[in-house]
Write a protein that binds this DNA or RNA. Structure first.
Lengths: 248, 248
DNA sequence: AGGGGACCTTGATTGAGATCAAGAGGGCAC
DNA sequence: GTGCCCTCTTGATCTCAATCAAGGTCCCCT
């Protein structure tokens, strides 16, 4: 629905992103060829559920374009987003049959899929891929634990600033044309989705966005397009250590 | 300092727990032998810091006895615990030089260590070990994301009940003598540490413990010893789906 | 036995964010 | 254009947990 360019401009070449980051950064041509043989593409509509918690999931995949979310729900309907899948992110877990979370496409999503069995067999024969998977999982674990700090100890304002900083960073990494400390990007999430990610209500998210705008930390064009005139200023608002502030 | 039996009774035999769960559940004798060759033991006093975030860490390890915590800190000192290491848990990350979190021993801790380089080389040659590591990391990721749900969406009471349920379950798994739905265990953490884990203050933790006791969900002997007369009743208080309630 | 200190409990008050409520903006179908 | 719906904003009020404050318990040390 929104930000269609986010999905299509991130890959360094026009091919499947797995060549670049997701699965096989250190593989040689022969190994890459094996991956090529078992891959296929699938697309999902905006708003479509890709998998429910507990669903049998017979593939793993790499996001080519679009945005998907991982979320968990309590009995009474309270939900918490536990991950965001942006282009080049990996989804699914070798060695596990079922989805551990609800996966939802928030925009139209294209995924580069690998059937699980052949992928696992390939992984068994190809140490590079197994390594890369472990590395990616450790990265996800770090991200999850950083998010625990945010959820447990940050104020609403710090949470909001942190989310903007993360999206800005990811966006800048995917669009290498960015220069300097001025950033501009579209929010890929509704206020409600941001609230689910941050452990807040949508009203509080809205108020925090308004406050950051009022104070000149960000400016808005419409409701989704954000300009960050001074990224360092935004980083101060996150409450994080100063040294975490590298753009990439 | 407390609960010394937790550490010493959990392993099925008297040897290093890596034989059983931590690293090599599927390895054959020869592979196990290779692990034996590079392992050594280290112990830490209660309260001692095992590693600070960013420290160079030249080993990975498996907890033999005692309890350690992983935590992260904001600039101004707010801290959030992001993981709990109980006996048989694994610590450290192959392929990464530095500690990602502060690791602290809350009781006296004994670890079975492997120097990182030899361990990584062994891992490269031994698919079982690489697999097991990926599996363990995925488990940690699931646990972290479940904790995100707790931190973002649960009430103080639900948080407290969830922590008690988790400790009770872990304790029951380590001491297979437990029977029925009545459980008894010692809290391995101070009120303050529990607060850091739950994203609460220590006063709130204390009040919630008192409330659960007042209402008969738990009973206390001293400040640390907990009895849960009806585990299902405790589970109701966690707010989780009913089907998450298997004892092991 | 007495004193000090770590840890815990409880009470009173405050405050950040949730909840309840109303309305504004913008896109789209007709 | 008109009306509807979806998303977002803003205001008023409430509530749960934080904060501030005081005292209690237990253990260890002398």
């Amino acid at each position: 629905m929104e930000t269609p360019e986010l999905g299509t401009t991130h890959v360094e070449c026009e091919e499947c992103p797995i060549r670049h980051r997701a699965v096989c950064a250190r593989c040689d041509d022969r190994e890459l060829g094996l991956l090529e043989e078992i891959k296929y593409y699938r697309s999902f509509d905006a708003g479509q559920t890709i998998a429910w918690t507990g669903d049998k999931l017979d593939f793993v995949a790499s996001v080519v374009s679009g945005i998907a979310t991982l979320s968990q729900t309590l009995e009474d309907g309270r939900t918490q987003m536990v991950g965001l899948l942006l282009p080049s992110d990996f989804m699914g877990r070798p060695g596990r049959e079922t989805a551990a979370y609800d996966v939802t496409a928030t925009t139209e999503v294209v995924m580069c899929c690998f059937r699980r069995r052949p992928f696992e067999e390939l992984m068994n024969r190809t140490p590079h891929i197994a390594h890369r998977l472990l590395e990616m999982t450790l990265d996800e674990l770090d991200a999850a634990r950083e998010w625990m700090l945010l959820l447990g100890r940050k104020t609403a304002r710090e949470k909001m600033a942190s989310l903007l900083a993360i999206i800005a960073r990811r966006d800048a990494a995917l669009r290498p044309t960015t220069m300097g400390r001025t950033l501009e990007f579209d929010l890929p999430l509704t206020r409600e989705a941001m609230a689910d990610y941050l452990g807040l209500t949508l009203e509080t998210v809205s108020r925090q966005v308004s406050a950051l705008k009022r104070e000149g930390v960000i400016s808005l064009e419409g409701k989704r397009h954000i300009c960050v005139p001074d990224f360092d200023r935004l980083l101060v608002e996150t409450g994080d250590d100063a040294d975490g502030g590298m753009l990439v």
